[in-house]
Simulated scan of single mutants.
Amino acid sequence: MPEPHIRPATPADEEPLARLERDTWSTLHAVMPRPEPPYPPVFDERHHPGDFLLAELDGRVAGYVRLAQTIPLPAHAHVLTIQGFVVAEGARGRGLGRALIRAAVTEARARGARRLTLRVLGHNTPARKLYEAEGFAVEGVLPGEFLLDGAYVDDICMGRAL
């Protein structure tokens, strides 16, 4: 099985990322409605190519993780957040997600972060298990924060020191 290649995104990755977003949309991890044409751009004034790390398998984009500074204050500059994490359905179970999370930790450290945080839906058991295996701990729960497919779903806040 080939190893995933992890690299920063470039502007040329717009279409593969947009396609990946559309193909993987699910209420297991998405709280926004299913994307419909005309599709919004992946890269915009808040989402830059440099925020994304891509995983390639066989030369194709098969996953990504996006890092963001969610509170733009100097006093919070030491905290980065995983704000987007997707692995293509056909690439799951091949270590891509783990490689992306580890790359995000490495990148966050390289950017000077001391903490890495994320939010995950309570019913997304596979993602929660991966995050826990990679050193993230539950730091808070917002009970019933989202109504998805007729059910109230918790929003789980997780974090780890770097």
Rank of each mutant, 00 (worst) to 15 (best):
V138W: 00
L96A: 11
I156G: 05
P49A: 11
D155E: 15
V86Y: 05
T106L: 15
V141C: 12
W25N: 07
T81P: 00
G97L: 02
P74A: 11
E139L: 08
E139N: 10
A151Q: 15
E56Y: 06
T10S: 14
R34M: 05
G144H: 14
L142R: 15
V31E: 15
E107V: 00
P74V: 06
T10F: 06
R34I: 12
F136D: 00
H47C: 02
G63T: 11
E21G: 01
P33Y: 14
E56N: 07
G50Q: 10
I156H: 10
E89T: 08
T10W: 03
H76W: 14
L116S: 04
V87C: 02
A133M: 10
G95W: 01
L118W: 05
D23N: 13
A127I: 02
L130Y: 11
F43L: 08
E89M: 03
P16M: 08
A9K: 02
R160N: 11
H5I: 14
T10Q: 15
E89K: 10
L80I: 05
F136N: 00
V120A: 00
L17H: 09
A75M: 15
P35A: 13
A91V: 00
V42R: 01
I82A: 10
R94H: 10
T125A: 10
E139M: 06
A104H: 02
G144Y: 07
D51T: 01
F146S: 04
D154V: 02
E89Q: 03
P4G: 07
I82E: 01
E45H: 09
V153W: 09
I101K: 00
V31C: 14
Q83M: 08
P40W: 14
A62L: 07
P35N: 09
V120K: 05
P38M: 05
L121N: 06
P35H: 04
L130K: 10
N124T: 02
V141A: 14
R111S: 02
V65W: 01
A110G: 05
Y152N: 02
P72Q: 07
I156V: 13
L100S: 09
L28K: 07
P2N: 08
H123P: 03
A75Q: 15
H47D: 11
R114P: 09
L118N: 02
L73V: 12
L96P: 01
H76G: 04
R119S: 03
V105R: 00
P38Y: 09
R111W: 10
G59H: 12
G97S: 08
L57D: 01
T117E: 07
L116T: 04
M1L: 13
D13W: 10
T81S: 08
V65S: 02
L121S: 04
R7S: 04
R94M: 12
H76F: 09
E134R: 03
Y64N: 04
H47M: 09
E14Q: 14
E14I: 03
A18M: 13
G84E: 03
G90D: 13
E3I: 09
L57N: 04
T70C: 08
P41V: 08
R119H: 09
P126D: 14
L67Q: 07
